[in-house]
Nucleic acid binder design. Sequence first.
DNA 1: GATACGTGGCT
DNA 2: TAGCCAAGTAT
Length: 379
Amino acid sequence: MKKRRIHCPVMVEALMDWYDSHPRDLPWRKNRNPYWVWVSEIMAQQTRIQAVRPYFLRWMERFPTLEALANASEEDVLKLWQGLGYYARARHLHEAAYLVLEKHDGQIPHSYKQLQTLPGVGDYTAAAIASLAFGEREPALDGNALRVYSRLWQIEEKTESARMRANIRERALTVMPAERPGAWNEAVMDLGAEVCLPRTPHCSICPIVRHCKAFGTGNPGRLPLHRAQTEPRLAPVAVGILEQAENQYLMRRRPRQGLLGGLWEFPTVEIEPNQSLKQSLESLFAMLGFSVQIGVEEHRLVAGFSHLIWDMSVHRVYLKAGFDSAKNSLRWVSPPEWEKLAMGQPHRQIAAWLTPPPLFPDTDCSYNVNRHESRLHFS
DNA sequence: GATACGTGGCT
DNA sequence: TAGCCAAGTAT
């Protein structure tokens, strides 16, 4: 393979100067503690920075060290993650903390390669931690960086292609300064977050416009190229509300794998195409150990995910025969108690609706109904 | 390579 | 407003 020389020291200096003169006040940049870097990078995956900020602060208060995290229960971890989404991130981080303690003598691995062996740490996060916390010279290619680089060099391939990312990585390696690799990565990402914006790049204030090939061509906003995203699937879903005396509602913990994994909910099933709502709910409750009768629909709401839309129909269910609540994935919970359980957005909405007195039952979900109304008509 | 996996803010 | 998509990873 041909060796490339370091490209464009002028451009590197311009971007580094811009970075140094535009410091962003982010909580996790107060130091380069590897644990802080790690947690912030995991939280930031597919998530906006303002959303991360409060979660990061709460997290560090509750789990100040790797040991504190490793010793916490998964339920506590998920509770702190509630609302951030992509809950596998929290479970993986929790497990990885344990692994670092057990198999790495409590030391977070230093290298790009080693970091990738940890659950939840992929290509990007390994590069980010290795460069930011340990000074390794490895380009961190997140969405921002991919956008900046693809415009800078006018890469016409889709970002989902492995070849495109390998190409960018190789080129990025030739411009990355050896002295401050972490700062370079942050500079590129910051530029993408604040200047080189997805739709409307602010080229007039960009410190490296003069080096930008896509700007020279006249339309940087069309890059980077993406694969067309697949339409979310629409799924009818039934939710059963089983109430014992004294405001005690049956809740269950969802399987740790899959959608909203490990979170608590009012028992919920997707209705299979050839099944009725009643059959679906009855067999779900049978599986949980309850023989029930299904009441009328009392509430309807729509929950949109990135890949899926739940059309949720909420029913009271009534106990016909004896029950067995011995499963530890089941719990009888009253309204004040359920605020301690980690729940996803859809079930938090149902909880809000259910919380007595529900003066205006419909008002809560109007936002989501409107949001997905157009899609619902296609079903 | 394609799909599963959340949530909310912006244009 | 409806669609886009944000500091990605696992399978």
